[in-house]
Amino acid sequence: MKVSLFIPCTVDLMMPEIGVAVYRILSHLDTRPVYHSGQTCCGQPLYNAGYRDQAKRAARHFIKVFGDDEYIVSPSGSCVSTVKQHYAELLADEPSWCDRARNISKRMYELSQFIVDVLGITDVGASFEGKVTYHESCHIFRALGISEQPRKLIASVRGAELVELGNATACCGFGGEFSTGFPEISEAMVKAKAVNFINTGADVLLLNEPGCLLNISGYLHRNHPQKRSMHLATFLAENTREFSHA
């Protein structure tokens, strides 16, 4: 099965190891990950900021690059949500593009959703001795309704104990431009997330949204450098021995 990787710009520029992890997991699961090197960014930051004309340009590029790929998989819920839930409306006044947007939206998958729902796999073969906890990112949990899938993947990791994060579905305070525009409010929110994480006593905070990860890991690095947060893909790839050949 050919799987087209959509690696979000945050991952491409800031955290490419997540992209590598996605590649390794998907190859290990007997799919054939491919990567269109023409891809850039879905345009979410422009769209959220209100720059719709500019966001349209990014959207048209995205649709062109991914063409008629059957499975487009991304390690970000907010990027998937942008394409899936906003492109058609964004391109509403350009009927042929709007149709293509509607069409592509049916072929977009968040990584954990793809592995569990499409591939039907919950155990990727990872083992980890320790306690982990999981943050329910807003766009994964509320916009896409994905929660069971990552939890199943985590629950199947041998040796790992999944402990519940207090107020797990509360926003971490990232929100793109929000984090720089309203730094005090954003800080109060990410601080609450960090406190809840520390209170679980877990070794690692897992999440599958690069934006949240930039925010939470940046806060932890400054304030609690001993605490670790990781993308679920990185966690699974790092803790699966058979992947080392990839």
């Binding site: 491409d12 955290m15 490419p16 090197s37 930039l214």
Partner: peptide, 24 residues
């Protein structure tokens, strides 16, 4: 630029290679 970010957070420097470059 994004000064507000740094009131409570650090930001990782950009890795030597983007995913694009690693892939290539």
């Amino acid at each position: 630029g994004a000064k507000g970010w740094f009131s409570c957070r650090n930001l990782r420097a950009m890795p030597d290679k983007t995913f694009h470059e690693i892939w290539k």
